[in-house]
Design a protein around this nucleic acid. Structure first.
Length: 583
RNA sequence: GGACCCGUAGCUCAGCUGGAUAGAGCGUCGCCCUCCGAAGGCGAAGGCCGAAGGUUCGAAUCCUUUCGGGUCCGCCA
C-alpha cells in the first residue's frame, strides 16, 4: 500500500529534523490554520527551542532550507515565532491523489494491529420500545464497529438485552392479574403495542402499591428460580419484544453478531458468587452481598458494588460481572467497549474494579465509551407532546416521511420508499453523530430531519451529483485520466480527500465518530466549491476533463467510505428539486 | 454533602494531547441557474470562548478559585 499524504510529509519533515540535528518526535505536519499562507504547517521546532537552547526561527529556517529544494514543495517558509509553512507542489498533490485513488479498498486507511474487540451497545429492554435515547447507542456503536473494521480490526457486537430482573417480574405479575383465568404458563394474545402500554402501567402500579411490588418480586424470584411456567411466558414476551426491536435495528443498519442478554449469563452467577465468597472478595454488609472496590488512592468516594440483595437476588452489576466472565471464556477479546449512557459511568467503574480485584479481566482492556443524554428544548430528557418518552420508531418514521414529501417526482427506476428511507435515516444519523460523544445534545426533531446545510443529505447530494457527472461522461465516451492539480479548488479538494486516513485513525483512537462526520461534511463542501468553480464535462481540454473526472471519482470514493463509516448509505440518485422549476 | 460532565455568534454545535486573525450550520440581509443536479455556490452582519487569577515565547484548550446548568452517589436495570 502507498503511504498517505500526511505520512509522506511527516517522513520528509522527520528526515529534515534529523539532518538538522533535531529529534524527530515533533516533526509532524497539520492543516494550515491560515490556508492563504500554506497548505500544511509544522509547529514542531518551537518546543525544541527550549531544550536545545537555540533560536526557534533559526531552527525553522534550517529545516525550510532543507525542504524547500525538494520537488514535493513549492515553498517552505518560516513565519512568526517559528511556524514552518509548507506549500505543496501540484505534482506532489497529484501524485498523492493518484496513489489514494489506486487503493480503492482502503483509500490510504492504515491497518491497525489489534486482537478481537467486542462492542456492547443497543441494550434494549424487553417490553420497552426503543426510544430516542437508544438512537445514540445504536448509531455510535455501529459507527465504531465500522471504524474499527476499516482498520482491519476484528469486531464482535453484542446488544446485551435487558431481559432479566425485576422488570420481568413486574410484567409477569401484571399479566397474571389481568388475565387471571389463563392456564398457567400460557400467554394472552399480546402484540408489541400491548406490551408497550403494559409495562409502564405495571411499573407505575408497583411504585404506588407495596403489595404489587411484593408480587412482582415474587414473580421475579419464580422466574430466576427456574419455574417452568414463568420461564415460558417470559420467553414469549422476550420474543415478541425482540422481533420489534430487530426491525428498528435493521432500519438503522445496526449490525449485531450476538443477540445475547442478561438472562444468558444467569447460569454462571451461582458459581461466580460462591467463588467470590470463598475468596473473601464478596462480603456481607447490611444483609446484602457486596464487593468493596474503593482503593486508598481514590480522590472520589467509591461505593461498593452490590452483588446480591438481602433476599439473595442478583442485580445489574452481578449480571455485568458474569457477562464479562462469559465473554472472556467464550471469546477472550483484547478489548471490550461499552457504548452506554454516560450516567452509568460509576456503575462501570465499579464493575471494572470488581472484575480486576477478582482476577476476571485477564488482559482485556475495558472501556466505557459513554455518551451524553438526549434532552428536549427545556434541557430535560426528551418527551413528546403527550409527555411520554419519544419512541425511536416514530422519530425515524417522521424523518422518512419528510424525506418522501421532499421528492417532487420519483426518479425513474428508483424505489421512492427506499430513497426516502436512505435520506431520512441519513439526516437522523448524521445529526446524532455530529455532536461529540460525551456531550449531551438538545433533541430538536425539526433540526434533526432537516436536509439543508450541515446534514447527511447534503453529503449524499454531493455523491449523487458526482455520480451524475460520471454517468454523463461515460455516455459521452469520456473517462478518468491522469490527475493534474492546478486550480485552487482542485488543490483544496485533494488536500481534503487526503485527510481520510488521519481522520479514521483519530476517530478510532478517540472513539469519536463525530470526527468522521466533520470530515465528510468538509469534503462535501470542498467538492461543492470545486463543482461550481471547475467545469468537468465542459473542461477546456481533454486532459483537464480526464483529470477532473478522476478527482470526481476519488472524491466520491472517499465520501462514500466516510459515510459508510457513519452507517450512512448513498442513493444512486435523489429527486430533482430545481428551484427554478418551482413557480 | 461528595464526585463527574458542560457554559464558545440570536439558536444548535465543532474546535480542547497549548500555536498565527476562534469555525460550521440554522436564522437575518444581499448576489448567482441560456452552463456538469440550486438538497447548491459566493458575500455581509453577528464573539471580552461564563468570570477571576496562574503556568509560558504563546491559553477557548493546561492548573486554581468562583458563578451558572446537567448528572450520578449499595438493595431498579
Amino acid at each position: 500500500m502507498t503511504a498517505s499524504l500526511t505520512r509522506r510529509v511527516d517522513d520528509l519533515l522527520a528526515g529534515a529534523f534529523v539532518a538538522a540535528g533535531l529529534p524527530p518526535d515533533t516533526a509532524r505536519a497539520s492543516r494550515a490554520s491560515r490556508p492563504e499562507l500554506a497548505d500544511l504547517q509544522c509547529n514542531g521546532v518551537m518546543p525544541l527551542a527550549k531544550t536545545t537552547g537555540r533560536n526557534p526561527r533559526e531552527l525553522a529556517a534550517g529545516i525550510a532550507a532543507l525542504l524547500g529544494a525538494r520537488p514535493e514543495f513549492d515553498e517552505v517558509s518560516v513565519a512568526g515565532p517559528g511556524f514552518l509553512n509548507l506549500r505543496l507542489s501540484g505534482g506532489f498533490l497529484a501524485d498523492c491523489a493518484q496513489a489514494q485513488a489506486a487503493d480503492p479498498a482502503r483509500l490510504g486507511i492504515e491497518p491497525v494491529e489489534s486482537g478481537l474487540v467486542m462492542l456492547d451497545f443497543g441494550g434494549p429492554n424487553v417490553a420497552k420500545p426503543l426510544h430516542v435515547g437508544h438512537l445514540r447507542t445504536l448509531v455510535i456503536g455501529e459507527s465504531l464497529r465500522r471504524i474499527l473494521g476499516a482498520q482491519g480490526i476484528r469486531t464482535l457486537s453484542d446488544t446485551h438485552l435487558g431481559d432479566w430482573g425485576l422488570q420481568m417480574g413486574m410484567l409477569l405479575s401484571e399479566i397474571r392479574r389481568r388475565w387471571p383465568d389463563l392456564a398457567p404458563g400460557t400467554l394472552p394474545p399480546l402484540t408489541e403495542a400491548d406490551l408497550q402500554v403494559l409495562y409502564p402501567e405495571a411499573a407505575a402500579a408497583c411504585r404506588a402499591d407495596p403489595a404489587r411490588m411484593d408480587e412482582a418480586r415474587a414473580a421475579t424470584a419464580a422466574l430466576q428460580g427456574g419455574d417452568p411456567e414463568a420461564r415460558h411466558v417470559w420467553s414469549e414476551l422476550r420474543r415478541i419484544s425482540l422481533d420489534a426491536q430487530t426491525r428498528d435495528f435493521a432500519l438503522l443498519d445496526a449490525h449485531f453478531d450476538l443477540l445475547l442478554g442478561e438472562s444468558d449469563v444467569q447460569p454462571l452467577i451461582p458459581d461466580m458468587i460462591a467463588d467470590l465468597r470463598a475468596r473473601g472478595i464478596a462480603i456481607e454488609s447490611e444483609g446484602a452481598l457486596i464487593v468493596e472496590v474503593a482503593t486508598p488512592g481514590d480522590a472520589k468516594p467509591m461505593p461498593p458494588l452490590l452483588l446480591a440483595k438481602s433476599d439473595g437476588a442478583a442485580l445489574y452489576a452481578t449480571t455485568d460481572l458474569a457477562t464479562l466472565l462469559s465473554r472472556r471464556r467464550e471469546y477472550d477479546p483484547a478489548r471490550i467497549i461499552y457504548v452506554v449512557d454516560q450516567r452509568q459511568a460509576l456503575h462501570f467503574e465499579q464493575v471494572f474494579r470488581a472484575a480486576r480485584r477478582a482476577g476476571y479481566v485477564g488482559g482485556i482492556e475495558l472501556i466505557h465509551a459513554g455518551y451524553g443524554t438526549v434532552n428536549g428544548p427545556d434541557g430535560k430528557p426528551y418527551k413528546t407532546r403527550e409527555g411520554t418518552v419519544a419512541q425511536l420508531a416514530d422519530l425515524l418514521a417522521d424523518a422518512v416521511g419528510r424525506a418522501a414529501e421532499r421528492l417532487p417526482e420519483t426518479p425513474p427506476g428508483l424505489d421512492r420508499e427506499q430513497l426516502a428511507r436512505l435520506v431520512g435515516i441519513a439526516a437522523v444519523k448524521f445529526a446524532d453523530l455530529s455532536s461529540f460523544r460525551t456531550s449531551g445534545y438538545i433533541f430538536d426533531a425539526e433540526r434533526m430531519v432537516s436536509f439543508e446545510g450541515r446534514t447527511g443529505p447534503y453529503v449524499q447530494y454531493a455523491c449523487v451529483r458526482i455520480g451524475s457527472i460520471l454517468a454523463k461522461a461515460k455516455a459521452q465516451g469520456a473517462g478518468p485520466g491522469p490527475i493534474a492539480v492546478a486550480a485552487p479548488a482542485e488543490r483544496a479538494l485533494v488536500l481534503e480527500s487526503a485527510r481520510l486516513p488521519d481522520v479514521v485513525a483519530s476517530a478510532s483512537r478517540n472513539l469519536a465518530p463525530n470526527e468522521i462526520a466533520d470530515f465528510v461534511f468538509a469534503l462535501a463542501q470542498a467538492f461543492s466549491r470545486f463543482y461550481s468553480e471547475c467545469p468537468v464535462l465542459a473542461a477546456d481540454e481533454d486532459a483537464e476533463r480526464g483529470s477532473r473526472l478522476a478527482l470526481c471519482a476519488l472524491t466520491r470514493a472517499v465520501l462514500e467510505k466516510g459515510l459508510w463509516l457513519l452507517g450512512i448509505a448513498v442513493p444512486e440518485r435523489m429527486g430533482r428539486t430545481r428551484s427554478s422549476e418551482v413557480t
